[in-house]
Design a protein around this nucleic acid. Structure first.
Lengths: 194, 194, 194, 194
DNA sequence: AATGAATGAGGCTTCATTCAT
DNA sequence: AATGAATGAAGCCTCATTCAT
């Protein structure tokens, strides 16, 4: 189906490029259309409105990532291994696509609340994965029993997200993926000695 | 001095209220002026432009909070106690002012990059406090020696921020301050058993 | 080409009419758009901004006039005949379009310096024509040898311009074209007896 | 009376300076007040409104000039001598006060029609002087009998004005007063040879 | 006479979306 | 399916003037 509608991805890719280059508020539909090599009106044959481009962008890029993640972690045995995979995959995805990193960490956050809630909806899959890892870990005794899963999930996601955002704001000038293990250890063992 | 410029705080307070109620993009200067009980033009006797209202808002509300925090943690002995204070103060501040919580966690993030960078500048004071706590803790042996301070700071801030944001997005319907200890324990000891 | 962009001239003609009727400072873009029968935004498909309408207006109306003048005077033999043509054509143009006369003599002069300098740029073609007539006239012996061409050009232009402005300010109630010969004689022979 | 109201001239002089330096549209009342060393409100104790400052400015600076001119030309015998005096005095006035030259030739013309008509009212004294010179000259036989006095006056004034304006627009970089004689000869004898 | 804080009306321009071709 | 010309709503900011002190 996507092969039959090549312009769909063409427009999404154009949007990523245009937004990364010009910023959220300077990324008019006409600019995206031009970058995609189609007429302004053509956009509306593939997307309901401008917001729909942005949601679809996030769904295509992150949604697929999350789906694959669900599969990949099944192959890991312990919660720590699974968490390690999540972190390194997350970092790798964004370190491998600088434009996407700028768009997801900086630009898309300038959108209105409504759009951000739809983005959160997509992210729920990610958060569910984290919840699953934590719940399983508790059952297996690998993770503290009394742990507030929601809170722990917020710590994990908040830490990953903040780490990536700081990296993007520092112009991505250090190796993000190389931080995976340190982040993992922090989340697993905390900052305390012993 | 602020007593001699009552309109300054009057306008800032009006801005918090209007933005919390109407959302960032629906908070026109005229609406803020009306809420503050002044003429539109009066706004510009106290602020350079609309953006300046927002920066000043953040500076007044968070800047003062950060300054006071710097004093308060001096009275605490261990890194853990200091961190406990930061977390509970942070949660208390926003739990105590629902409108301010909405504005800082949701609405102000829709601003453009330029404004957000200025906000980050103000937040630097906060991050420096965290860095100070961590560095001292390492020296005293309370915190792991090899710890990447920047990464740990990102974990702490990211966790706190994500916790508050989730709370706001859930309509602040549970007790945020009550979570302080759990969050502290997570950060200090991580999620692992033992 | 102009037939394929009918709205361009449509908007310029509307601008002349609106400015003549309402005055420079009361000629909002929305008023011009309404008069032209287009939407406000359509203006900006054809003009960079409001100032661009005014410059284009002058360029279209006077620029074409100047170009045609360059051709027309070639057919005249003497400097006096050429000057006669310039004066009568100039008077005829403005006497034939009362609105244009108001706009060029009164309203457009209220514009800022920047715009007026751009208008002067267009007028340079006119001044060059006058310089050419004078220089040729000197070479042929028809005009005084020691003449300061720049000064003479300023006299000619200043006289024509002042004559038209006075006529417009007097509500165009006498026959401007009929004055052509008198003006010519004044410029050619001065006010002195013999 | 003016000695008893020193602030009146103080404000007018401030206006000339501010307008010459900042341009007509950037010369706010508050800027003029600041330059004059008075409060904004004080302006309105001496002038009805902003327009009144500008008219008074012109009246004080040019009005006095015209009155003195009326006296001075009485001492000259011929029309040509009188005209010579008018030209050289006019040029001298503006060459001697660069700021005033900028204000009268460039900036004040950006004002609205209403103000410009009031300025013209003041200039009527000037034009009457020219008319008087011409009429007397005709009676004495010095000037052509059939001359259209109004037209001749427009030529004289238009030429003088255009000469000064061009000089100001060229940054006053040549000697304006030195042109007096050439301008006089042009007006008296025209451009024709013999 | 002097101050200066406060007022509030007013307009250019952008850009997501439509629809006739 | 594709085009792109046309639409029109919406808001920040300036600055001449006032008036309580």
């Amino acid at each position: 189906m996507k092969q039959k509608r090549p312009k769909y991805m063409q427009i999404i890719d154009a949007a990523v490029e245009v937004i990364a280059e010009n910023g959220y508020h300077q990324s008019q539909v006409s600019k995206i259309a031009k970058q995609a090599g189609v007429a302004d009106g053509t956009i509306y044959l593939y997307f309901k409105n401008k917001e729909d481009i942005l949601i679809s962008l996030f769904k295509e890029k992150m949604g697929q990532f999350i789906e694959r993640m669900e599969e990949d972690i099944k192959e890991k045995a312990t919660a720590k291994e699974k968490l390690a995979l999540v972190i390194s995959k997350h970092f790798s995805l964004l370190a491998g696509d600088h434009n996407l990193a700028i768009v997801t960490q900086l630009e898309l956050r300038q959108s209105n609340l409504e759009l951000r809630q739809k983005i959160n909806e997509i992210l729920k899959g990610y958060l569910n994965i984290l919840d699953g890892i934590l719940t399983e870990g508790i059952q297996s005794g690998e993770i503290k029993e009394g742990l507030d899963v929601r809170l722990a999930r917020q710590m994990i996601f908040g830490t990953i997200d903040e780490t990536v955002t700081t990296w993007v704001m520092n112009d991505q000038k250090y190796d993000l993926v190389a931080l995976s293990n340190s982040v993992l250890e922090l989340l697993v063992s905390g900052i305390h000695n012993k």
